[in-house]
Write a protein that binds this DNA or RNA. Structure first.
Lengths: 302, 302
DNA sequence: GGAAAATCTGTAGCTACGCTACATTTCGCG
DNA sequence: CGCGAAATGTAGCGTAGCTACAGATTTTCC
């Protein structure tokens, strides 16, 4: 109960990131403290002030001053904030997978990395752009999702969700088909172009062709680039991409969650009648045992 | 640095859940403390021992005894654990999406819910089963992924990852095709059957047919059920599924992350030569600008 | 280049927070 | 109705975290 907490503290975002940013403003000995904290946040949580000071080879007050330097009122609060962040375990930058890791370690690291990245993506998401995209999607007579490779998976997933809300929409993961579809679209229709790097040339071709026809193009991408420049609206889903070979691409997970957000927000715009139809369908799907094709044909309620 | 932390505490999982479970063993006045903590964990974090005692209308030592009762050594540790859990803001049960939510609220709630659910899935994942699945996949001459609907997306995603590690594998989201594929599989081959509820009848048919042929069947499902019973090994990916119509299904996200874990773990088993080939391919994909079809044809390194 | 000033860092002491030993009360049971 | 055991509150202690001050170091300006 009492969901809203007005006395909630000003969200300082990721503390570790804040430390990184304000590192320059810190005094030399305070930086030694920062090093220790960044190196092993999880351990600092279990440290006492004296221990932390000893670990950084500085005196206790220096540690306190470090806390104040990064905008925290004291050491206790630092530990609390650190505990919040270390909910995901070790900080993301350190969860590089080593070839000799045990399955349990691999699991921990990947989940950790995924959680941290999603958290990061959430913070970096621009609310204004998001709202704009929702408006466009809610008003579109027709929606097409397009992407290649991993982004193709996102497109297919989006296609599975949006029709539920009464929006005719499709998805394509083939260049030729994408091009042909683009040519059948009308002004006012929305094309959602998905590409993590935003440089996939074949997709850019399709986007250009669509825009020439007056189609509204929404880019769902991981960074500013050719795609975001070519689109009418660019929704940037920023993820932490470290370059380790074994670290799986998190980008599609983040994109999927964003698609969840979009589809849900669009659904909320729908009149109550359609919402009811959706609930009905969901009940039907839940009870469905036959698991028919994905074409979405309405099965009888069990 | 110092990735392994041998002095890590015994993972108490979700503290709030632990409190719920041990509620019966608690003394009457300690339960009053539990009420306060469960009602507003985020606020208790910022409380002092005296304040917490006052809020529960008990004395300080009672609060301490409460901490000991739930397996924590003291009040400080309780606050720390509470901070860990409130990392995602409000607890998951409260993030039910209301029809009049603003886009920003929808975003927050969905991300929050996703993060909490993933965290939950991680804790509930059985390491032994996971290790067993990895062994099976690493040894399999051939792997097929099958699923319907949302689980079909997971199957397609898995298919995109595993071939990179030199494993011939396929994915199918069509019942007829699945059945035919099952009939072409040989003893020792692995069929990964994906279904969140684990009751999709058409998939169960395929599983039975495959097992009759001596194929090893791995179930990737959200709960124990018909599928987990029918399979050789059942990997349960437990998610928090509240039944709100607008709450998107988290199951596929969790399943995707588990697929990440599996593919990465299998990749680590590969000899260095193949690992090198993978790195090479990833470099090529990164530089690829043409974004050819998803068939995985090797593009020249740019 | 030297001296003064400002800034940074460590020492000492204080407040109070969290924890433990003990007394009191309350409830169950013979 | 009285005894015993459990449960709860009171008092006091140790220590952790924070503040005032002084010494050391670097910077700056003449």
């Amino acid at each position: 109960m009492s969901g809203g907490d007005p006395s909630a503290p000003p969200r300082p975002g990721n503390v570790l990131q804040a430390i990184h940013e304000r590192m320059a403003d810190l005094r030399p000995s305070e930086r030694k403290v920062a090093q220790v904290v960044l190196a092993n946040p999880g351990r600092v949580v279990r440290m006492t002030l004296a221990e932390a000071a000893q670990a950084a080879t500085v005196s206790e007050p220096t540690v306190i001053r470090f806390c104040e330097g990064i905008g925290l009122p004291g050491f206790q609060h630092l530990k609390l904030e650190l505990a919040r962040n270390s909910a995901f375990g070790v900080s993301a930058t350190h969860s590089v997978i080593a070839p000799d890791d045990a399955p349990q370690q691999v699991t921990d690291k990947i989940f950790e990395y995924t959680l941290t990245s999603l958290d990061h993506a959430r913070r970096r998401l621009d609310p204004a752009t998001l709202a704009q995209v929702i408006d466009l999607l809610a008003a579109a007579p027709r929606i097409e999702f397009m992407g290649m490779g991993a982004s193709g998976i996102v497109a297919l997933d989006a296609q599975q969700k949006f029709p539920l809300f009464g929006r005719p929409c499709g998805a394509s993961i083939d260049h030729h088909q994408q091009y042909m579809l683009a040519m059948t679209m009308e002004p006012g229709d929305v094309l959602v172009a998905i590409s993590h790097r935003g440089e996939t040339r074949s997709l850019l071709q399709v986007v250009e062709a669509a825009r020439a026809r007056g189609v509204t193009v929404i880019a769902l991408t991981g960074q500013t680039g050719s795609l975001s420049a070519a689109a009418d609206v660019a929704l940037i889903v920023e993820t932490l991409d470290n370059t380790n070979v074994f670290t799986p691409t998190i980008s599609r997970i983040a994109a999927l969650v964003v698609v969840d957000v979009l589809s849900t927000a669009v659904a909320l715009r729908m009149p109550a009648a359609k919402t009811e139809r959706l609930a009905q369908m969901k009940r039907a799907l839940t009870c469905m045992r036959t698991g028919g094709s994905q074409s979405g044909d309405e099965a009888a309620v069990c």
